[in-house]
Write a protein that binds this DNA or RNA. Structure first.
Lengths: 212, 212
DNA sequence: GCCTATTATGAGCAAAAGCTCACCCCCGGA
DNA sequence: TCCGGGGGTGAGCTTTTGCTCATAATAGGC
């Protein structure tokens, strides 16, 4: 399997081109969310976008490329969510606050179109490109959490603990929000933060009773 | 989407029929694990099983049915793993031990063919039947954990906590084992158990001071 | 050895999906 | 007004895949 072309085959040079591209992406998001990846055919996407398939393939060389674009957009949105959160809440000054921020941002980021996110996470074909992108993102977060834990936390293996924390947040938030059962978001956030905090500070509290 | 037929269209009456069926299932497991669900075509499965495509369709009415059979087999294996574990370790007598058992069994159960399990969990089409089966299984486990927590644990919302525990174990174990990075299984088990235990018992060690 | 139910075969059909390409539209600068 | 090129179109080609069915081989009771 030679890695497919995933970049747009043509950058739009006029506004109307850019508009068409956005229409296609928006339509793809809706179609994938509603019908899943396999059933979300390129023809259906084009139809929903009120654009001919020819136009679709002018901007996206193949179906996977559309999904990659959607994923990128989601990752960007995540960074944006974090930025906005810090604008009002300020940067976290305690381990507790940092963990809460982590969880809160993850939840916020999943609230927008959980259906689509579910499809992306569960049904999307894992192209090398996409996997790398996600892996980099994950590593970044693990490194960040490792930095948080290093000075204060009481866990035997900081690296492992960081991986556990990051993955727990990501996976659990996704599952609980995308799942069918109703969910009290605030309560969920509190519980998840409690679990992580207790995990990561239990030892120091037990030995010294100090909290940060 | 009218629910497809998922049961074998013919129960084998001779040993050679049963043998063929097993060969098909084994081949399907290998093919799906190696190539993913979409690329694991029925023809490829038949070829790998050294069986004609016609024979395959004699026992499995369609591709999805093969996957459902594989999933059932995995669930059964899970119950079996638990049984075997209790044979040597005995039934858990503390909350701690029960959580450890939960984690341990989940890990053991994922060690056999993680690739296949990854495919099943991530790429399989979610037929109503399969979803129900999994949902029932999950509910069962949530109920079990709720029973564990009810008397002893200090969490504000036992139901939510049980859901969090069950999903954390399932998702995290899957992700960490199927993931590409090397993993010290014993250390991982200890850490995960530590997280859950601290989550669920932190309050009883702290007198108060937490919200709720 | 004969006979019937069971099992096995594989060429090929029908449907569907990804994608191409030859052609047309229309914007904007000169 | 003219014209070049970016933008847009959609019938239909190609490939793939799930699956059928007419036919053949085999097992095992009599």
């Amino acid at each position: 399997m030679p890695g497919k072309q995933l970049q747009p085959r043509k950058e739009p040079r006029q506004i109307r081109g850019e508009l068409t591209r956005q229409r296609i992406l928006a339509a793809a998001a809706r179609v994938f969310a509603e019908m899943g990846y396999a059933a979300g055919t390129t023809n259906r996407i084009a139809e929903r976008a009120r654009v001919s398939i020819g136009s679709l393939y002018q901007y996206y060389p193949n179906k996977d490329a559309i999904l990659v674009a959607l994923a990128s957009r989601h990752l960007d949105a995540g960074a944006e969510t974090l930025r906005r959160h810090r604008e009002t809440a300020g940067p976290p000054d305690t381990l507790d606050a940092a963990l809460r921020e982590l969880v809160h941002v993850a939840i916020q980021n999943h609230l927008d179109d959980p259906q689509l996110f579910r499809v992306m996470a569960e049904q999307a074909p894992r192209s090398a490109e996409l996997l790398e992108q996600v892996a980099r993102y994950e590593e970044e977060r693990v490194a960040y959490v490792r930095g948080l834990l290093e000075p204060e936390a009481d866990v035997s293996n900081v690296d492992l603990a960081a991986r556990i924390v990051v993955n727990t947040v990501e996976l659990l938030v996704h599952k609980m929000i995308a799942g069918p059962e109703p969910l009290d978001l605030a309560a969920f956030e509190d519980e998840l933060v409690a679990m992580l905090t207790r995990y990561v500070t239990a030892g120091s509290e037990r030995s010294s009773g100090l909290r940060h």
